[in-house]
Design a binder for these strands. Structure first.
Lengths: 252, 252
DNA sequence: CGATATCTTGAGGAATCTCAATACTAGTGG
DNA sequence: CCACTAGTATTGAGATTCCTCAAGATATCG
């Protein structure tokens, strides 16, 4: 239900020079630059990256990439929420991450996507052609270093999630999820953080290795205990964040 | 029950020059070099890496590193099997990977280990001081590129395992595990691969998010179906590897 | 204000876990 | 060489968590 492609430099400005200028100025004004991998580049390097970027918009529920597809572009989220997931042939799904503003997705030097991605809300993304991006990676050690760092962070996050999926109870999983949402940089809070949940209960379930019903029941019981408070179901107040952290950590 | 530290260049040869020479010649003769991250380095670069390496031995069941410890060294497995895991305060454990010959562990530029590691069998490892390693990383783009590549492989493997932990049945998990063991490069086979299982049932369970009893029961039922055959419990023959692959993939 | 999605709640069932007993294996000492 | 011991694996029976299926409540959007 978003507008279709409000920004598309390659449509509006076919000349390379103008596109370059346009893209650069847009990237310069980018609000998520500081949070993003591209924040490490400066001056000339940043301009080179901005020269190969194009913009893409997706409606809520729209598919972005599919596991196994040719990985022609690498993507960076400007706004909105994206789920990335793997699926089994019979339809079972495991969501392996939610991406939001500033998050990068895609592996340079890999021919095909290893996961599928779908927009949860309307989404704006930057797209970088894989080959051009690879060239920049070779030229700019800073860029490679940054992506390496992001990759190692992802490994650490993945291990955290393996612990959750393999060994935590439903209650601990839901608490862990809420705490992680509250700790996102995009969710700066004062004391009792208010957390937005753009994803459905079924998506939370597919992320936590549970069913929608179990997620719902668990949230209800946390609500009954006063640990969380909810106004509409897509926004929660974590009334007792520290208690939630304890539950999440398995400290009974 | 292995000998304690049969190779320790820094003890035997205190002079820097001799240690250098010693280490280099040892690294040149290294059998797992081709499988390892260091295989990408040549000549001068390789010598520089060899100059900072020391050797470490661990007995079976001995702890190698502990989650949260100061990460003074990065490690590479020469021989034996290592488990890396995360634990909850009440003792629940999730094994996030098994390492064998040629596998690297440790994240440059990270102050502390994010996981614990323990030897399953007697283990020989190379140790690289983190700071020296970091310097080499800055000097040799090839090395950084290689570790980046390993890191992205790890992310992909972790996602695979999240799918397993979140959405596969016990039967599918055990089948996936056996297939993965058979597909290891160290386990070259002809038709019906014979797989060594140096880890206990409890460790397999901690890797698959199950209990020891469920792993045992599942192996028994696969055995009754003729899909696997076992002589001693630490070695299995995958009589019907293709069938196992189907089970693992969830293709019923 | 009604239609459609999503969410919540309920009741029963299934897979896996827990607890406990038995069997195997390898290493040890007689 | 064989019995013994300790660790590991297997098997069994019952408990529990979470899932499945189904109905009802709530929210969203035209």
């Amino acid at each position: 239900m978003s507008d279709t492609n409000p920004l598309r430099p390659e449509d509006a400005v076919p000349l390379l020079g103008r596109r370059f200028a346009h893209a650069l100025s847009r990237c310069d004004a980018c609000e998520v630059r500081d949070r993003s991998f591209c924040g490490v580049l400066e001056g000339h390097e940043f301009a080179r990256l901005a020269a190969i970027v194009t913009s893409r918009s997706f409606d809520a529920r729209q598919s972005i990439v599919h596991e196994g597809d040719e990985a022609e572009v690498l993507l960076n989220v400007i706004s909105g929420t994206v789920k990335i997931y793997r699926a089994l042939p019979d339809g079972r799904v495991q969501i392996v991450g939610f991406l939001s503003e500033g998050d990068f997705m895609g592996v340079p030097a890999t021919r095909r996507y290893g996961v599928s991605a779908e927009a949860i809300t309307p989404v704006e993304m930057c797209a970088f052609p894989r080959r051009s991006f690879d060239r920049l990676l070779n030229e700019f050690p800073t860029l490679e270093r940054r992506l390496f760092e992001l990759s190692t962070n992802e490994v650490a996050a993945a291990r955290d999630h393996m612990l959750l999926l393999g060994r935590k109870t439903a209650r601990e999983r839901v608490a862990s999820f809420l705490v992680a949402m509250a700790d996102k940089p995009s969710c700066a809070h004062v004391s009792s953080p208010s957390v937005a949940l753009p994803m459905t209960r079924a998506e939370i379930a597919d992320y936590l290795g549970l069913t929608m019903e179990t997620v719902s029941r668990t949230l209800t019981s946390l609500r009954n205990e006063g640990v969380i408070v909810s106004s509409p179901p897509d926004r929660l107040v974590l009334a007792q964040l520290e208690k939630l952290r304890q539950i999440a950590a398995g400290d009974v």
